[in-house]
């Protein structure tokens, strides 16, 4: 078998057997499926805050950025990591504030803040 298949396919098979990638794909599709069902239930009324909230959630890249900035592997990656932390923090912090600000505006007929 080794003779027929190119190296990269063997490598890929090995990695899939290791499991982490396959589990990752599992998780991705389960999350996407769940997300699909939740998001189709969000009324158009809330589409703007939904977008700013999911944008804030995707600032989870901060987790990767922090790891690279804090690892101090070498100067180049540390600088990239720090800039990435900065960019992701703008969304991570700002995203929730702007969502809250927007949602505070939506009031029901009773005039109560809901």
């Amino acid at each position: 078998m080794e003779k027929i298949l190119p190296q990269f396919i063997l490598q890929a098979v090995e990695q899939v057997q290791m499991g982490s990638i396959l589990i990752g794909i599992y998780i991705f599709f389960l999350a996407a499926f769940l997300g699909y069902h939740l998001i189709t239930r969000v009324p158009p009324l809330l589409h703007t805050p939904l977008m700013s909230l999911t944008n804030a959630i995707s600032a989870i890249s901060i987790v990767g950025a922090m790891t690279i900035a804090g690892m101090k592997h070498d100067t180049f990656t540390t600088i990239l990591g720090t800039i990435a932390v900065l960019a992701a923090s703008i969304n991570a912090v700002g995203g929730y504030i702007i969502t809250e600000r927007t949602l505070r505006m939506f009031k029901g007929r009773g005039g109560g803040k809901k």
Binding site: I39, T54, S58
Partner: peptide
């Protein structure tokens, strides 16, 4: 190899796509 990134990214990616 970080699952939280996969999940949060899938939620955001799916949401943007549906919209």
């Amino acid at each position: 190899e970080n699952n939280i990134l996969i999940i949060a990214g899938a939620l955001d990616g799916g949401s943007g796509f549906i919209l």
